[in-house]
Amino acid sequence: MKIILNGNALDLADNSTLLKLIESQDLTGKRLAVEVNLEIIPKTEHASYILKNDDKVEIVHAIGGGSANNSGSNFALNSGIISPSVNNHLDKS
């Protein structure tokens, strides 16, 4: 099946859990939050939550920012008003 992860298409085995997806992206144990189709899935449910074809998954974390820092991909900006063209400094490490 195919899902959309942070705006990009991704092939995934049928009936994969959210935890499986997180593991496959080397994000195990990282401090993050997950939304599936605009609904937050609490950490306690990642192991039992089964993804479906065409699910839209957003995985977010905390980055450096003060006010109106436009760097990084803003998961909330669907409108395209701001293009996330400037990568945040964490990308360069």
Binding site: N8, K30, L32, V60, H61, I63, G64, G72, N88
Partner: peptide
Amino acid sequence: TVAIRRTNIGQN
């Protein structure tokens, strides 16, 4: 204060 952004997938 910190910003909330997409985790970089497949990088570093």
